[in-house]
Amino acid sequence: MGFVTATAARQAGRNFFELAAQFRSFATIGFRRYATYRQATVASLATNTTFGFLRSYVLLAVVAASGAGSIAGYSRAQLMSFVWLGQGLIGVVLLWGWNDLSERIRSGDVVMDLLRPQHPVFAYVSADLGRAGYAFATRFLPPVVIGSIVFGMALPTRATTYALGLCSVLLAVLVCFLCRYLVNSCAYWLLDNRGPTMAWMVFSGVLGGLYFPLRMLPGWAMWALWLGTPFPSILQAPLDVISEHGGVPGPAAMLAVQAAWAVVLLAACLLVQRRAERRLVVQGG
């Protein structure tokens, strides 16, 4: 048995269970890859927590100056949720510091990704969800616990918020991953991928609701960002869902926008991948 007898072709996963098993094995690899770098996890955690304190004091000063006790419909406790959930989610969605794909494109190792029976986007998305699972335990929970002990956060009052929040975080991971995949894929066409990477770092933070809640913007600007860019779907959406912000858009609308962006970006990734592969197979890696 084994390689002694070359067996007839096994088709790539066709039924749901086989697909699920393949998803799980890619996800396991993604999880374990990050689990091997404990020091990196601790360092990121320390950074996220430090910035959590900074942002908390800034926003608390803004609230105090306004004299109203709330801004943009966020109570003081909701603002603290916004800050600390955000600091935790940066690591879960992995907003910055992912250039695995562009590195593989540059080195030519990406060719090996094409020599698998699975679609590369499927393999990468599975691995990233595994990574997010690890990050949820190690990079989300600690800042949230610290934030709620030191500043007092608003905990969800409705049971459904937990379920909706989980869906929203999952969609956020997916949307963020697909964006990163697109940014990394620029390396197929550019010798130097620093431009797209920088643009992504700036826009994802500023326009995604990390530095300030997008609800502080005038209505038209906020809606333009929500519908015209994927950025609010990455952080603003799960933050507002979990902190139970009462305004418009409500949780259902935010989840719908997130889902729509996930679909659009997935289509874009598949298209880009097809173009990239065509370029690769014609010009040589």
């Binding site: 072709a9 790539a12 090996m112 094409l114 020599l115």
Partner: peptide, 16 residues
């Protein structure tokens, strides 16, 4: 390619 990938094994010395 993907169907073929199930039936071949490949080692490129410079790639991992």
């Amino acid at each position: 390619r993907r169907r073929l990938a199930a039936r071949i094994g490949v080692v490129f010395g410079q790639r991992s």
